[in-house]
Structures are given as structure tokens and as C-alpha cells.
């Protein structure tokens, strides 16, 4: 068998180098937030905050060049198209966080504090990391005493 020869009984003898394409990977996102603190009177202060974050990462459609006839002939049972591949890297998240609370000065040294914190995450592309949707709600209350 020569260096460049092929053996009909073994159909898959050769290696044709690499096939490649250059593709774009995009990362986009935006975020808005708002915080407010309002002293309603000398005893009561109200706090609120809102955070919304949208983020996305995606690979564009992978468009490989066509293989030559020679390659097609020898690697005929293989598939060099990658149309679905871009979805394996895609991620898309929405995250929202809302906090509401107040401080109430019971005496000059004692304050009652209350806070509610709600977070929710939505993952629209769940192939990669599975179902990541979820929400969390935390309620906190207590007293702060200055000695």
C-alpha cells in the first residue's frame, strides 16, 4: 500500500486536515436599578429598591464550509453541519430583585426594622445548565438597640 493509495476494503483511510469557520459570540445585557429612602417623619423611614437585570450570551449559527467531493466520498456517513450547535452555548436570564422595608424609631435608642426581599430568576435557555428558574423570598424583622 502506497503512501497516497487507498484500500478499497478499508473505506476510511485518510485524514483531510481541519475544517473551520469564524463565528461570532455575542454577550448582551442591560440593567436598571432604583433605590429610595424616605424619612416620612422623625420616627419612620421607608426604604425601597428595585433591580432588574437581563443578560444573554449566544453563539451565532455555525455555518461550516462545504467539504470537498473527495472528503464527501470517504467520510460519507459523517455530518459536518452544525446547525444546532449554537444553541448549546446559548444563555438568557432575567433577574429581578425587589426590596421593601422600614425603620421605626421606637425610642431614641431603639429602632424596629422590617425588610422584605424578593428575587426571581428566569432562565430562558435551559439546555446548558438545566432548569435554573426559581424565586427566593426573605422576610427579616428585629430591633436594633443602641446602648
Amino acid at each position: 500500500m502506497g503512501v497516497d493509495g487507498s484500500n478499497d476494503s478499508l473505506q476510511l483511510l485518510d485524514h483531510f486536515g481541519s475544517l473551520y469557520t469564524m463565528e461570532d459570540y455575542r454577550t448582551n445585557g442591560y440593567q436598571v436599578y432604583f433605590n429610595s429612602s424616605w424619612m416620612a417623619n422623625s420616627r419612620l423611614t421607608l426604604h425601597s429598591s428595585l433591580l432588574y437585570n437581563w443578560s444573554q450570551a449566544e453563539l451565532e449559527l455555525v455555518d461550516m464550509p462545504h467539504v470537498t467531493e473527495e472528503v464527501e466520498e470517504q467520510l460519507h456517513h459523517q455530518d459536518f453541519t452544525f446547525e444546532e450547535m449554537h444553541t448549546y452555548s446559548d444563555l438568557k436570564y432575567h433577574y429581578v430583585n425587589v426590596q421593601l422595608g422600614f425603620d421605626y424609631q421606637l425610642t431614641p435608642r431603639i429602632a424596629w426594622m422590617f425588610n422584605m426581599d424578593y428575587s426571581h430568576l428566569t432562565a430562558d435557555e435551559e439546555y446548558v445548565f438545566g432548569d435554573e428558574d426559581g424565586s427566593m423570598f426573605i422576610t427579616r424583622t428585629g430591633v436594633k438597640i443602641d446602648f
Binding site: 454577550t27 445585557g29 444573554q56 450570551a57 452555548s89 446559548d90 445548565f129
Partner: peptide
């Protein structure tokens, strides 16, 4: 966006 502070996703 990707896990583990990766600059791009795997």
C-alpha cells in the same frame, strides 16, 4: 453571564 465567571460559555 456564563457560570463560574467564565468570559464565554462552554
Amino acid at each position: 453571564v456564563a457560570n463560574n465567571l467564565l468570559t464565554q460559555n462552554e
